[in-house]
Design a protein around this nucleic acid. Sequence first.
DNA 1: TATGAATGAGACTTCATTCAT
DNA 2: CATGAATGAAGTCTCATTCAT
Lengths: 216, 216, 216, 216
Amino acid sequence: MSNACPKWKRQPEDRPAQITEAALAVFSRKGYQAATMQEIAEAAGITKGTIYLYFSTKAELFVETIRSQFEEVTNLFPAIDYDPNEDPEEVTRRLGRAFLDLLMSPKVTQALPLVIGEYRNLPQLRELYLDEFVGKLDMNVAGLIELGKALGRVRDVDPVIAARLLLGMFFIFVLTQEVFDAKTRTPMDKDAIVETITRIYFRGVLTDEDSTCTDS
Amino acid sequence: MSNACPKWKRQPEDRPAQITEAALAVFSRKGYQAATMQEIAEAAGITKGTIYLYFSTKAELFVETIRSQFEEVTNLFPAIDYDPNEDPEEVTRRLGRAFLDLLMSPKVTQALPLVIGEYRNLPQLRELYLDEFVGKLDMNVAGLIELGKALGRVRDVDPVIAARLLLGMFFIFVLTQEVFDAKTRTPMDKDAIVETITRIYFRGVLTDEDSTCTDS
Amino acid sequence: MSNACPKWKRQPEDRPAQITEAALAVFSRKGYQAATMQEIAEAAGITKGTIYLYFSTKAELFVETIRSQFEEVTNLFPAIDYDPNEDPEEVTRRLGRAFLDLLMSPKVTQALPLVIGEYRNLPQLRELYLDEFVGKLDMNVAGLIELGKALGRVRDVDPVIAARLLLGMFFIFVLTQEVFDAKTRTPMDKDAIVETITRIYFRGVLTDEDSTCTDS
Amino acid sequence: MSNACPKWKRQPEDRPAQITEAALAVFSRKGYQAATMQEIAEAAGITKGTIYLYFSTKAELFVETIRSQFEEVTNLFPAIDYDPNEDPEEVTRRLGRAFLDLLMSPKVTQALPLVIGEYRNLPQLRELYLDEFVGKLDMNVAGLIELGKALGRVRDVDPVIAARLLLGMFFIFVLTQEVFDAKTRTPMDKDAIVETITRIYFRGVLTDEDSTCTDS
DNA sequence: TATGAATGAGACTTCATTCAT
DNA sequence: CATGAATGAAGTCTCATTCAT
C-alpha cells in the first residue's frame, strides 16, 4: 500500500479515531473554546486542514469526540450478570467497585466536565448526556432495583430515583476528587469510599438499633 | 428622579453588584468564553468601558461573579439549629428539604456548571469550589454526623465521606434535572426526591428484614 | 488668599506650569503616545478633568510642554559676552562647557527625543524645533563665527554650517550618552569630551606638522 | 504569472522582507504607535492576520524592521580600503562623502527617528542603536584614527570620542535637514557640507596662523 | 474650579475556516 | 489525501474626552 514508508507513518487507517483521541486530550486540558484546531492537529500529528477532511467544524469534532467516549463507557456496563442466590449487598459492592472504576476512568473524568461546560451552546451534548449517559446508567441500575423489589429484598422506593442517587454518590467523588483534584488536599481511600457508599446505600447511616424500631 | 437623562447614569451606589448580577445572567446563558463584555454591559445597562472601572479583566469579573454567588449560598446554611430530642431522621428530612432548595436555587444551578466548565483555565475557581462550596458543606454536615455518632444514633462511618455522599445525592438531581433540564423529559417530584434521599440515606435500600441480620 | 489651607495645598497660582512640569516627567518616561492623561494628572497631584480646564487636548498639552522647555533653554544662551582680547580658543572652551551643560540638562535630554519621536504627527513641533532650537542656536554661534572671520581669526567657512557642526558634536554625545544611556556601557569623561570637541573644532585632528604644509 | 487571482496571493518567497518594507514606510510616516497593523497590511498588499504568521507582535515587527535597516546600513561600510600613501585628508573626504550618503539614505533617515522615539518602551532598540549602529560606526572610524595616530598623522586624541564627533557632525545634518526637513527652509549644498566637515574635522576652524603657534 | 464616573471609538491579536498546491 | 498560507470576523481592553455634580 505504502511504497516503502521510510519512517513511521501515521496510520491512515483510522484517522477519525486518531483525531478524536488527540482532541479529547486537548479539549480536556484547555476546555472546548480555549482549545485550538492547531493544537489538536499537532497532538494528532497531522495538520489543521486535514481535520476538516473528517469533521466539518470544530463543534462537530467536539460532539463526536464526546460521543465516542460515552459510547466506550456505556459499552462497558451491560455486562452485569446477576446471580439471585448471591448476597445482594455483595453483588452491589462488586458492582459499585466496577462502577467507580468506570466513572473514575479518564474517559469519564475528561468528558464529563467538558459536557457540563459546553452543553449550553451545543444542544446535542444535552441529548448525549441525558440519553447515552444518565439514561443508560439509570436504566441499568433501576433494573437491578426492580429485580430486588420483586424479590422482596429492596424497599419500596422509586427505582429511577434510587438508581440516580447511587450515581450521584459516585459522581460527587469523581467530580470533587478527580476532576477538581481535591485528592491532593483531602485524600480519600478509594476502598473506603466504595465501602461507605455501599454500606450507606444499603443500610443507611442509622444504627440497627434505630433501624429495627423506626418506621418511616 | 429625572429619568429623562439620555446619556449617562450616575453611579447607583453599587455598580459592582449591578454588574455581577448582569454578568451571572449572561455567563449562565452563554458560558464564560462565549459571553462578551459587550453583552454583559448591555445587560447591566451600561457600556463596556464602565465594567473595566470595577473589574480589571473578564476573568476577574467572572471569578468575582462566582464568588459572590457562593458567598450568598454559604451564608444561608449555618442556621441549622439541632434539637437532640427531635427524631434524627426528621431533622434531616427538614434539613434535606432546605438543602435541596438551596442547591436548586438559580444561584447554584447557574454558578456550578460555570465553575465546572472553566476551572481549568481559572485556578481560583478550583479553590473557590473546594473551599467555599464543597468544604463548607462538608464541614456543616459532617458536624451533624459526628454529633449523631456521639449520641450513638449514627453508625461508624467516615463523617466527611458520609457528608459528601449526601451532597452527591442532591447534587446529581440539581445537575441532571435543573442544569441539564431533564425535568422536561423525566419529571420527578421534588418531595419524592427528598423523601427518597432521606429514607435511603438513613435506612438504606434494603428491607429491615435484611438489615437486622446482616453485618457488613 | 487661601482661607487657612489645612495641609499643603497644591498651589493654584500657576496650574499650567504645574501641569506641564508633571507632563514632561511622564512624557519623558513613557513617550507621548504611551503616556496617559491619568498618569500625568496623578503626577501633578490633580485629576484628569482638571487638565482639560487648561489644555484642550493631549496634543496641545504636549506641544505646550515642549515649548515651555525650549523657551527656558533658549533663554539661557544669549548671555555670551565676548571680549575680543580674550584668546578665542579659550572663549569657546568656556562657551563649549556652558553649551554642553545646557544640552545635557534634563530639559533638553527629555524634550529632544520627544520632539524627534512625535514631530510627524504634530507639525507644530517641527517649527518649534527648527525655529526655537536649532535656529536660535545656529544664529548665536554663527554670529560668533562671523565675528571671528571678520577678525581674521577664523577660516573661510560657511558660518551656519560651521555653527551647526558644533551643535552636532555636542548633540551626538547628549543623544548617545545621556538619552540612550550609553554612559553605563562606555563611560566618557565630560571634561574629556569638551576638551576634545574644543580641540578638534579649533585645530582639527591633524598634527601641526601636517596642518602647516597642507592646503585644502 | 496569473495576476488575475482575486483573493489569495501565494507566498512570494520572502514575505518577511515584503512586510518589513511596508512596515518601514508606514512606521516612518506615522510613527510606531500611530501606525496600525491594518495600514501596514494594506501597504504590503496582504491582510492583518498574515503579518502575525511572521511576526508575533507589533513590537517584534517594529524591532525587526529597524534591525533589518541597520543591518543593511552597517553592511555597507566595512569596505573602507585605505592606502597609506594617499593623502589622509583626501581619504576622509572620500569616506565622508560615502558616510553622508549612507546616513542620508532613507534607511537611516527613516529608522533613526523611529528608534529615538520608541527606545523607551522597547529596550531592544537601545541595544540595537548602541551596538549595531553607533558601536559599529565608532569602531570603524576609531580604527582609522588609531592608524593615523600610529603614522604620526593624527594628534593625540581619544579615538572613540573623535570618531563619535565625526558621526555627530554628519548626524546633525541628517537629523535637521532630512528628518526635520529643514532643507526646504535653509537649503544647504551637500558638497559644501561634506567639504566643511572635512576641513573643520582635519584643520579646525582656526586659521593656520593661529594653529601653528598655539598649544593647548 | 475641580472631580471622576461614564463613554465609545479603535487597536491589537486570535483562530476557525478555506483553498491553491 | 494532505498541506499550511492566507483570510477576516470578532473580542478584549485602553484611554482621551465629556459633563453632571
